[in-house]
Design a binder for these strands. Structure first.
Lengths: 336, 336
DNA sequence: AACCAAAATGGGAACGTTCCCAGTTTGTTT
DNA sequence: AAACAAACTGGGAACGTTCCCATTTTGGTT
């Protein structure tokens, strides 16, 4: 049977220390310095012998703030997301906040549910990597005074700060690198850009820039229902005369494409391969896959500090966009 | 300026619906059925127009239970951990619980801090993948009536359930597979087993079984300060006469070893390579790396259901060990 | 129609904390 | 030594909910 010796409370500590609950409360809050050193040690001792832990639920209830931030992640199994979570967590802890992470598995239904949950826990700020477009819900949350930050994906009709990669710059850097290396036609592979603004931005920049610069560019929108092996094979065959490269819109695509290259025996390098998002294995695939690494730590920290600014009333006049530059990691896969 | 229109409460809903707070409380709790259908719809309407969200802090305070589970992860950037987190999250949600995940980055200091935090949030159960050996703290938590489950790593002098891979079986399966494939000497590569029981169990089983079965086995304890390239080169040279294989204790080691193989030009297959933990890229490294995949979903679910059993007083008479069998994924790296 | 059990509803205390304000002590100035 | 300001301490209400128990309503029997 569980011992259910209920948790010790503020009042018990106060009793043992021979003081009032107010003083004990002060001791554990930001006003500790107002207490006499003598009283401080007395409280510290009492709390120690009783093993007292403040009950954050009670604190959160009485207006004291929950000291919690909430984070919604579209796909926790994506290494990029994990890296950002890691950055956010560190930044949050450094500012005395804790983080509740919820994973939506790219399901708008779960996203709704989790948003309800997070606001029920009275989080003081929300970092959102959206799966769907829950404008209505988010607008309601914002109206209730909870600051929001969007991560990587914008949401229409919601004027919140968006933090993420500088997508246009990333595409430009990729194109520049690939052209420099001597590739003369580029196939851009992406998932359906319908519901993720970052995908849209990248795709749009790609078509725009290839047109402007007169580069021979094609796009391939991946679709689970179809087999893209044929397309890739054809592209690779054409590479023999004029070298072509495949540019992958994100880490997942890089994985998919690498699989196809290997299964079809397409040589990496002669047909170029490059991806947005850095992954642990990119250096291991012979001859190494060139990537644009996202500065995940910076992104995580920017998200938190943006939130804290809003919390402290230093809100920007208008919702800002933080665009972070990628880092080019050159490897053998982009040498024809 | 923030609108700070404070959240609507139970009482406002009750007022609008022309009923009492008790009834509204019942509506949102497990006793909804006790209410007249007419009352139910009236409350539902009122709650809807006001956009009411129950305040879980208040609920948690008044003994109602926080409906929160806490999870401590030693390294969130380890794909294995993420996969387990995913399983735990799904199982928790299915039972109406939410999950706070804290990452300790393998730092006992952070572990302590996070444990304090989690118990301050009144979590109803704790799933712990330990970094250090915080027996004292965990014992205190257990005494206060919060059920515990250990994940992958045991903690001395704490009689809690441990859930994880069947390490002995995993080693046995690996040895059997490697011998069958014709390897005649095996190098077991692991990180220091000092503070992780799973590593100890695997290492111990390896030395024991190689001795018992008369297999030529060596162990290599990785150490950041040293360069193990020499050892590997020597091992590979000997493989020419009698084929040898490297068995990696976990996913990280597999990554490290693969790097060394590639940098040193050691052929994978002639010198075997096999790892515990399945990773996305293992099939991509030519000729594919053989692995023992952990059943991460099963492990996550087992952890949650073990916790819920304890919560419902169905506590096992003695702390149990759940050992889950791995799945052998054969690829080209173990064909001499 | 009167009665009674069962079901439905509501009032109030309690959960553990913070914060306001009042009361007490300390220290400095005349 | 008196007076006053400043620093420190403490009592009580409030936060939004749940749960106990009392009260009211319902519906079935005699």
């Amino acid at each position: 049977m569980p011992v259910t010796s209920s948790r010790t409370t503020l009042i018990e500590v106060a009793k043992l220390a021979g003081t009032s609950k107010t003083s004990v409360s002060r001791f554990f809050g930001p006003e500790r310095e107002r207490l006499t050193p003598k009283l401080q040690t007395r409280i510290a001792e009492a709390a120690n012998t009783l093993g007292y832990q403040p009950n954050l639920m009670a604190r959160g209830l009485k207006g004291g703030g929950s000291r919690l931030l909430g984070m919604l992640v579209a796909d926790i199994r994506n290494p990029f997301s994990v890296a950002v979570v890691h950055g956010v967590e560190q930044a949050a802890r450094a500012s005395g906040y804790s983080l509740i992470v919820c994973n939506t598995d790219n399901d708008p239904k779960q996203e709704q549910q989790h948003l309800r949950l997070l606001s029920a826990y009275q989080v003081e700020g929300l970092i959102i990597n959206a799966s769907g477009q829950p404008e209505a819900q988010l607008q309601a949350i914002r109206r209730s005074g909870v600051p929001l930050v969007l991560l990587d994906r914008d949401i229409h009709q919601l004027d919140a700060a968006v933090i993420g990669l500088d997508n246009a710059l990333a595409i430009d850097m990729a194109l520049e690198h690939l052209m420099e290396q001597g590739y003369r036609s580029i196939l851009y592979a992406s998932e359906s850009p319908d519901y993720a603004s970052a995908r849209q931005e990248r795709l749009q920049r790609f078509t725009q820039q290839t047109a402007t610069l007169g580069i021979n560019g094609q796009t391939l929108i991946l679709n689970n229902a179809l087999d893209h092996t044929q397309t890739l094979n054809a592209f690779a065959r054409r590479s023999v005369s004029a070298p072509g490269a495949v540019l992958c819109a994100n880490g997942n695509i890089t994985l998919t494409m690498t699989r196809i290259f290997q299964k079809q025996g397409i040589a990496i390098g002669p047909t170029g391969l490059m991806g947005i998002d850095e992954l642990a294995w990119c250096e291991l695939i012979t001859p190494g896959i060139t990537t644009l690494a996202q500065p995940t730590n910076d992104i995580g920290q920017a998200a938190v500090s943006c939130l804290l600014n809003q919390l402290n009333g230093l809100a920007q006049t208008s919702p800002t966009r933080h665009r972070h530059a990628p880092r080019l990691q050159v490897r053998g896969s982009t040498t024809p």
